[in-house]
Design a protein around this nucleic acid. Structure first.
Length: 352
DNA sequence: AAGGCGTGGAG
DNA sequence: TCTCCAAGCCT
């Protein structure tokens, strides 16, 4: 069964920046473990399309794990801005530093050793071990869960069925070319055995798929219902000084958007928090930014002002150093609303 | 051991 | 607009 899938993979594998070309692979070239690891961290809960440009920028700027280990925290967070799940970036740096200082810059080559590193869990440990080091580990991600649930018509819902799916995935993993096999199943799940409207007619595994035989492929895997997201409210205040510097904050290292730049503001709560600006001034209310996080909707009221002198100490970032690309998407939205606002225009020269 | 943790695209 | 969900990990 895996032979048929590997044949399909050899003919249809997507060309991706972290993969070695089919020709090089046939010549015995192994992928760079650093690039495999970096891609796997970025791909956690994130689409290939979103990851590509980030992967290229990271590997251009930091070609080896030791380069990354030597990077400044704020540079890595800024480079990750917009990709989401920022704990990944914090753990990425932690992991790079452990590999650089405790493993001589070489990634461990077993699932067990990889599993001890920050940000590497069961999936990523198995993926790196199999893809980079050709070890026959069982790789179980959302794609593999879906493919296995359909192949064997597992009707128990996730996440309860996960152990059963892991068992089935393990039985399906071949001793030969386990890294290619892992990528092949994931490619299959991403391009043919998709969550909705699976393309069963062109599937290399259509011969042995129980769900297809039963006509229930689109219904699997079943999942337990998710809770509705509440709406939370908050305020941010965007201030510039005479020179055009922006008043910002570095968010706490843990929690939502942890370690990222942001605008000073209130907590976000379901009952509208009291508007308390960072300093007294003539603030203009610009409107509302809407953003959805994993577990709640946010409506953020944006205020802006321009001041002559800096009324408070803090993280004032000059116009030459400020880039909205360094901000998480929510804060970027707030900036976009303020960018063209009259409230942020320089004050007219006195006496004119 | 459920829930926290981003974002953008698809339908 | 709204829901789902994508190569999960951490606590």
């Amino acid at each position: 069964m895996s032979d048929r899938l590997l044949d399909w993979y050899d003919r249809h594998a997507r060309v991706l920046p972290w993969r070695v070309s089919p020709e090089a692979r046939q010549a015995g070239v192994r992928p760079d473990p650093y690039r495999v690891w970096l891609s796997e961290i970025m791909l956690q809960q994130t689409t290939v399309a979103a990851v590509k440009s980030y992967f290229l920028r990271f590997t251009e700027r930091w070609p080896t794990v030791s380069d990354l280990a030597a990077a400044a925290d704020e540079d890595v967070m800024a480079e990750w801005a917009g990709l989401g799940y920022y704990a990944r970036a914090r753990n990425l740096l932690k992991c790079a530093r452990v590999v650089a200082t405790e493993h001589g810059g070489a990634f461990p080559d077993t699932r067990e050793a990889l599993l001890t590193l920050p940000g590497i869990g069961p999936y990523t440990a198995a993926a790196v071990a199999s893809i980079a080091f050709d070890r026959p580990e069982t790789v179980l991600d959302g794609n593999v869960e879906r493919v296995m649930a359909r192949m064997y018509a597992v009707e128990d819902p996730l996440p309860g069925s996960k152990p059963q799916l892991h068992e089935l995935a393990g039985q399906s993993t071949p001793a030969e070319r386990p890294g290619d096999y892992a990528q092949a199943v994931m490619d299959l799940g991403a391009t043919i055995c998709t969550p909705r409207n699976p393309a069963c007619g062109i599937c290399p595994w259509m011969g042995g798929c129980r769900a297809r035989d039963l006509g229930i492929a689109s219904d699997l895997p079943r999942k337990t219902r998710k809770k509705p997201k509440p709406v939370r409210h908050g305020h941010v205040w965007i201030a510039r000084d005479r020179d055009g510097a922006w008043l910002m904050e570095r968010r706490p290292a843990k929690g939502l958007l942890g370690g990222m730049l942001g605008w000073p503001g209130t907590d976000w709560s379901e009952d509208a928090p009291e508007a308390q600006p960072p300093f007294p001034a003539t603030w203009q209310e610009l409107g509302e930014v809407r953003h959805t996080f994993t577990h709640f909707h946010l409506r953020l009221t944006v205020h802006a002002t321009r001041v002559a002198a800096r009324p408070v100490d803090g993280l004032w970032i000059g116009p030459e150093a400020f880039s909205p690309n360094d901000l998480p998407t929510l804060m970027r939205k707030a900036h976009a609303l303020a960018a063209g606002a009259e409230a942020l225009e320089p004050a007219p020269a006195p006496g004119v």
